[in-house]
């Protein structure tokens, strides 16, 4: 089955060490995510130019929740599904993402180390739609890359 990102331009589809794609303000040095939505600016440099950057692929679990009720349209998640909020150390920002497919939500604890992976969101005639996910960090070596 062909793989297509569920959303264009938010993450690199490099299975070994995927990254979120954000932007960095050239004046402020602040980071922004997601890259394609004009959701935030640093008021000290509101009109600055931004460069596309790969964000840190590991971080600290800020919070998490497992959802047990079927969400409304246009959601595609099957219950139960878990949403994680992970704080990136260098970027000093929290980013929401699904828990990695197959990971055990009962093992989660605020403060644990997490890493970015790519997994399936849903499939249709166009193929498997992939999404970035947060997984408990297994191999400290891979975090350094």
């Amino acid at each position: 089955m062909s793989r297509v990102p569920a959303i264009e331009g938010w993450f690199t589809d490099d299975e070994a060490a995927p990254h979120l794609i954000g932007t960095r303000g050239l004046e402020s040095g602040s980071y922004f995510f997601p890259p394609s939505l004009a959701v935030s600016a640093n008021p000290n440099a509101p009109f600055e130019d931004r460069e596309s950057v790969q964000l840190s692929r590991t971080g600290t679990l800020w919070s998490y929740t497992t959802n047990h009720y079927a969400p409304p349209e246009p959601s595609v998640q099957q219950t139960p599904y878990t949403v994680c909020a992970v704080e990136l150390d260098a970027e000093k920002m929290v980013i929401l993402g699904p828990l990695a497919t197959g990971a055990d939500a009962l093992q989660l604890k605020v403060g644990m180390q997490m890493e970015l992976v790519i997994g399936p969101l849903f499939s249709d005639e166009a193929g498997e739609h992939t999404m970035y996910q947060w997984a408990p960090l297994r191999d400290p070596e891979s975090a350094a890359q």
Partner: peptide
């Protein structure tokens, strides 16, 4: 006030506390 460190509906991310301010 920037940077807001709490994840707010309906956002995917908080502001970044790195950088100016």
């Amino acid at each position: 006030s920037y940077p807001n460190p709490v994840i707010e509906m309906p956002n995917f991310a908080t502001d970044s506390a790195a950088g100016l301010g």
